[in-house]
């Protein structure tokens, strides 16, 4: 068992970074934690500080205002950290690629480990994405 898979074997703690998003992805992420999907069963917990997190979820495009803050947050994160780009915006920029505030999809700013496409992705898709990520790391 490698160091990475050892780190991510149990209770993943998740920090959520909402970039310039439309809110839907944020809500679907919260939805994963509420009774129907209830990710907390598996020890997956939303935490308030990046310093406690194993996974960084990023959704929405990154605009010029967010960019340096995302980099700062990534730098503060304890490594190894898994970064997941959620939604069409996070993966590619989606509808907003031509916007004047667009500073790149998430992977132009920080390294990304997994992409969950969809606009917004269903909670099931988000969960499936994280499960795949954990199995492969």
């Amino acid at each position: 068992m490698g160091f990475k898979s050892y780190c991510f074997k149990k209770s993943l703690w998740v920090f959520h970074f909402g970039g310039a998003s439309c809110n839907n992805c944020d809500i679907e992420i919260l939805d994963c934690l509420t009774p129907r999907h209830d990710l907390e069963r598996f020890g997956i917990l939303l935490v308030g500080s990046i310093r406690h997190a194993d996974v960084l979820l990023v959704n929405g495009i990154i605009n010029h205002h967010d960019k340096e803050r995302l980099i700062e947050i990534y730098n503060q994160a304890p490594k190894p950290i898994l970064v997941v780009a959620i939604g069409a915006c996070g993966c590619t920029g989606g509808l907003f690629t031509e916007s004047y505030t667009f500073a790149g999809p998430v992977d132009k700013v920080i390294p990304v480990n997994a992409y969950v496409p969809g606009c917004p992705p269903k909670p099931e898709a988000i969960i499936a994405g994280i499960v795949k990520l954990v199995n492969n790391s």
Binding site: G18, G19, A20, S21, G60, I61, N63, H65, D66, R69, L95, F96, E98, S99, Y100, T101, F102
Partner: peptide, 14 residues
């Protein structure tokens, strides 16, 4: 605010 600005009014014109 400004963390969430995406320039929608401008995009709409295109």
């Amino acid at each position: 605010t400004g963390y969430n600005h995406r320039g929608i009014e401008k995009l709409s014109e295109s």
